[in-house]
Nucleic acid binder design. Structure first.
Lengths: 240, 240
DNA sequence: CGACGCTTTGACACAACTCAACAACCGTGG
DNA sequence: CCACGGTTGTTGAGTTGTGTCAAAGCGTCG
């Protein structure tokens, strides 16, 4: 994207690891042309779609979560610009799996058949898409392991390091920080903790001079120690 | 499969919710023709494959897990006969994600291109496959939510109810029980608990006359109460 | 100004973990 | 046949991480 034109968030993301041809960029831009608005706190439902669709987040943050029958919420992931959202619902409607905006934003609606076309007509782009989706899936698995086998502190550290990496990839983070619209309730529901304990853990990290959050700005003070604490390892799978 | 012939575990599984034509059955049988042996405790690696492949479990139980740098293990799922295993590795090699046999068994090796062919040549079968894989994915998400937001008892109850449902689907469970090769260490690593606590929780469930395990045989004594306890809801997503 | 959303803190309770034994069960080999 | 070691299950006592409850601080915005 040396020409500086905007071909959509997905193109931006994919460009970071493969060089997209002019044609492929056009295809991606066209794919993301149908856009909808996304409001903070608003639940996204795909009712009334005549054909199966997927969503690609263009700007803002979203969150996908499950509601437990006792009222508790478990956040599965926070889609960021360039990420697919709700691609699972392409084929099926998971009963208690929801999607909502963390901030205002924009998403594009993609016809599922259009995606399949890409696999046929532009295989290289297709495998890039597959890579991207696989990466998202690997992150869910990571998240599962994190909740199951890491302490609250390790989980928190791991979570923010992963967020840093994802945001850097799409140019929304510097080497040492980023803007983060997540409050402590959202963090709690994502990490399987109580909001109060999230606060305590954040204080510990602050007092150990590892990282801090102030007014929605995350600042990393000692990434090396933080990575050691979280036993962090890059999420990016190696391409075959 | 009214003719009683064996077209592979995947065919058995898919047959339970769509009627497969003779031709589709043949395609599935051919797909699963290349088989490998799987030994209890043996790690499966797909090294040396000339082209990307997926695995379908035919018999026995397997388990896919992540190893944390501190040595802890988090089991992601237990593939059962008819389930895809390691389809994620089709495109990428997740660094610390492993697959191993819980029991001896057999798996078939499928060339990824062969799968793609099916989507083209037999769309109905393709969408059945997609349904099956989506279901597996939904189960991982369920598992995540379970570990994040359920108590140890609820988790245990949920886990076994889900297992019951999956095993019934492939004819490996009765209405009230099944054979289960999982020991308390495996349960612990799956549920994000310590092995000792698993033992205590199982005792509680036994003393409450909800379910019991003896010599690898799981027996459900009060499924209704168990479902209430686990806030269980069927994993099967509705097809569009 | 008050109301609201979010953060922070303290005191206390409890679920789950750790450590340390011991018991039951198995297949193996003497 | 029994003795044996290894694996798995069981139990108790004590510790600790995390949840719960309650309340106060602090911005922001109408």
């Amino acid at each position: 994207m040396a020409d500086g034109k905007n071909y959509g968030a997905l193109a931006t993301k994919l460009s970071t690891f493969i060089n997209l041809s002019k044609h492929e960029l056009e295809v991606l831009a066209e794919l993301q042309s149908r856009q909808i608005r996304l409001a903070r706190g608003e639940e996204l439902t795909e009712e009334g779609q005549s054909s199966p669709t997927a969503l690609i987040l263009q700007s803002g943050w979203a969150c996908s979560y499950k509601l437990m029958p006792n009222g508790a919420r478990q956040i599965i992931r926070f889609p960021l610009p360039g990420d697919f959202m709700g691609y699972r619902s392409v084929l099926l409607r998971a009963s208690d799996h929801f999607l909502c905006g963390v901030t205002d934003g924009i998403a594009s609606v993609v016809d599922a058949r259009r995606l399949l076309d890409i696999f046929r007509s532009s295989p290289r782009l297709g495998s890039a898409l597959l890579w991207s989706v696989s990466r998202d899936e690997a992150m869910v698995v990571d998240h599962l392991a994190s909740i199951g086998r890491r302490s609250a502190q390790e989980r928190m550290a791991h979570f923010f390091l992963q967020l840093l990496e994802r945001l850097k990839l799409i140019g929304l983070a510097t080497e040492v920080g980023f803007h983060c619209p997540l409050n402590q309730y959202l963090l709690a529901d994502a990490l399987g903790l109580s909001a109060i304990h999230v606060n305590r853990v954040l204080r510990q990290l602050r007092e150990q001079n590892l990282m801090s959050i102030k007014a929605g700005e995350v600042a990393f003070h000692d990434i090396v120690t933080l990575e050691r604490l979280a036993a962090y390892r890059s999420i990016d799978p190696s391409l075959d």
